[in-house]
């Protein structure tokens, strides 16, 4: 029998995620000989990540490319995988996030399953960077006293607070005006988003701090999957895995382009020295310690072992 599945995500159609989502839809139709049709709703047409997550859980949306860390209001374990300074380079990210299954994947998958979501594959959002309009940020001390919008995540808010930042909460559509008029000095997001949301128009300095790596999930509604045959479920899982891997490569090309755009717009781009990274890592270590009660002793210990390789 034929089935139509709705796939939602918050990324622009032309982004690597948007392309990957369309690819997912094409492959699903092709490989099921037209039995499975996937209708893609990009760019937050069906709401933000949190809303999409709830709908997946209820089965009113069947598929999504989702940032599970945005669902931390639903479950505190949803932002375990974006803890600061787990990975600093793409080599580390590839090993930890896309290598052998480990505590990060287990935590994410189990948390998703508890909320009736099923992971079909992982994709890359971005390393996070720091932008601001005041001064180049080359060390922890440079952050002192800045007013910054930080993504609502337990660990990242804590990290910036510990660095002496005045953490400000702002909804996404208000960030641009707030940056432009100086209500906040800076924000932290990946360079692709800084480029695409035009934040660079209101900022002077970008630090490629890589303070957190955001891996995201190609997710299905468990309810919707249960209605499919085991073969079709396997088919979607295989496509999720394949498309996720494709997106990671594609996204890295886009990071380079975004960085060029930001540079061309006249922003000063700073990379952290090894000493500065060590400073930030020490702060991150405090954050990890403080959040251990939330995530659990064992889990954090396992993550430490994983990082030490």
């Amino acid at each position: 029998q034929e089935v139509t599945l709705r796939l939602a995500h918050v990324f622009p159609k032309q982004s690597s995620v948007g392309e990957a989502a369309n690819r997912f839809a094409e492959l699903a139709s092709e490989r099921s000989n037209g039995r499975i049709e996937v209708a893609v709703f990009p760019a937050g047409q069906l709401g933000g990540d949190e809303a999409i997550g709830r709908e997946l859980s209820r089965g009113t949306i069947q598929l999504a490319f989702i940032n599970p860390n945005s669902m931390v209001g639903i479950d505190p374990l949803f932002d375990f995988h974006i803890l600061p300074f787990v990975a600093q380079s793409y080599e580390e990210a590839d090993r930890i996030y896309y290598g052998e299954p480990n505590v990060i994947h287990r935590t994410l998958n189990e948390t998703m399953e508890r909320h009736r979501l099923k992971n079909l594959g992982y994709f890359e959002n971005d390393f996070r960077a720091i932008s601001n309009s005041r001064r180049p940020v080359a060390s922890v001390a440079d952050l002192q006293g800045l007013k910054m919008r930080v993504v609502p995540s337990q660990s990242l808010k804590l990290l910036f607070e510990k660095a002496g930042v005045q953490v400000v909460t702002l909804p996404f559509p208000e960030i641009f005006t707030a940056l432009q008029q100086g209500a906040v000095d800076g924000q932290e997001n990946g360079v692709i988003l800084i480029d695409q949301a035009r934040f660079f128009e209101a900022q002077k300095y970008v630090t490629l701090s890589n303070h957190s790596y955001v891996m995201s999930s190609i997710a299905a509604s468990q309810r919707a999957l249960d209605d499919l045959s085991p073969e079709d479920q396997a088919l979607l899982t295989a496509i999720g895995d394949e498309v996720g891997k494709w997106q990671v490569q594609r996204n890295r090309e886009n990071v380079a382009t975004a960085l060029e755009n930001i540079r061309a717009a006249g922003l000063e781009i700073t990379e952290l020295s090894p000493e500065a990274v060590a400073e930030f890592r020490a702060l991150a270590e405090e954050v990890w310690a403080e959040l251990t009660p939330v995530y659990g002793e064992e889990r954090v210990a396992e993550l430490r072992t994983l990082i030490d390789g």
Partner: peptide, 9 residues
């Protein structure tokens, strides 16, 4: 501007 990638300024 942010949906299309046009300069908001």
């Amino acid at each position: 501007g942010s949906a299309v990638g046009a300069s908001i300024t």
